[in-house]
Design a protein around this nucleic acid. Sequence first.
DNA 1: AAGTGGTCTAGACCACAAA
DNA 2: TTGTGGTCTAGACCACTTG
Lengths: 234, 234
Amino acid sequence: MSLHARILTEIEERILSGEWPPGTRIPFEHELTAQYQCSRMTVSKVLTQLANAGLIERRRKAGSFVKRPHSQSAVLDIHDLEAEVLALGLPYRHEITLCSKRRSMRAEQERLGLASPGEVLHIVCRHFAGPRPFCLERRLINLAAVPEAAEESFTTVPPGAWLIERVPWSAAEHKIRATAADDDVAAALSIADGSACLTIERRTWNADNPITIVTLTYPGNEHELVARFTPSQG
Amino acid sequence: MSLHARILTEIEERILSGEWPPGTRIPFEHELTAQYQCSRMTVSKVLTQLANAGLIERRRKAGSFVKRPHSQSAVLDIHDLEAEVLALGLPYRHEITLCSKRRSMRAEQERLGLASPGEVLHIVCRHFAGPRPFCLERRLINLAAVPEAAEESFTTVPPGAWLIERVPWSAAEHKIRATAADDDVAAALSIADGSACLTIERRTWNADNPITIVTLTYPGNEHELVARFTPSQG
DNA sequence: AAGTGGTCTAGACCACAAA
DNA sequence: TTGTGGTCTAGACCACTTG
């Protein structure tokens, strides 16, 4: 393994593990050259890569700082619900329908990907654009990974935004489906039974440790996911 | 603009414009240092970036070669329909329902994003997984951008795969929606009227020049898009 | 004014794959 | 065996921003 690859992974680990939370100033280039006993070019290359990847921000004279994970990847972008509603020119609010802490049932354990039973937080939340329901959120949080979530009511900040601000993650998976609204969904979104809905299921891990699984259900024709990209950006 | 940024964009342009098609060997590092009158470190940095971005492949002793655009970005991956069907363990075939060349109507012009009327190819195609319809493809191709498409029947290679192999692109946009099946879609996919479908609309450009717009419609519950990613990969 | 990052140089040695 | 890319060094000068 090359030196700059080692430096890169070591810094990446500190950021993704939360040891260096967003806002932290990481060591100056000259400190890293001393620490790793290498030339400045080597650490500079690494920091430039991290900056290109969006993990850190570099400011002349001030230093390099850990960035807050800007919810990226285009497809993911969409999931800042509040920003999305406001972009439509409509007022946003959310409403917690259910927030219950309990020992995981087997089905929940499997959905989250837990190896053994544990405490989970089950949340149901409706997001509104103006007077109309915009999205139904059903979420499980692994309390072993995020114990402080148990003390939250999520009435001021919705669960998604709350988690993104606090919990570092290293991997995510989206599953996107079209589904027919069942009774519950139809009632929650004020739409007809059986109408088409867009469902996004998102799971998040930090170093193989499941954090949360969330299902977002949107009324079908009123919502679309948009993703733009160029071939040079994998 | 820094020197390495200039070198990067110049090489990128040659690749994306098709001047250097996939498989082309790009100049050796020592040739580029001569051309740009700079040190080897500078061009090496650029080529490393291009390799990381997946635009080129580097082989010791052999040189650096333009890669074929591996349809990436996870969400896009899914759209190699044949690979997807085969991954399900089912035989794949496709069937061209319509393939007509004509002058664009105004609605088509707008969908494609053409500034003025022009020749377009309108294709309707069904993709099968075993005996069952798997996906309905409705496509417009801008013949000004891809004149050779007019001579194709697309009976051996479906239009999507044909285009990817031949036409370089610099930008793409996906819109993902849940829709209710209308008469046409229901008939084409052998499903009930009004059932939920997943619709992916994809537009592709090469340097602001529209190439194609395609709408892929899948029976809802039988299909899902999966995207995985990590925060360090924008 | 001082210290940071941004860029670049002109070398060097090594690993690897092709001839 | 040879020539390519992969990595690294020990400098250098500049631009910018903060104090």
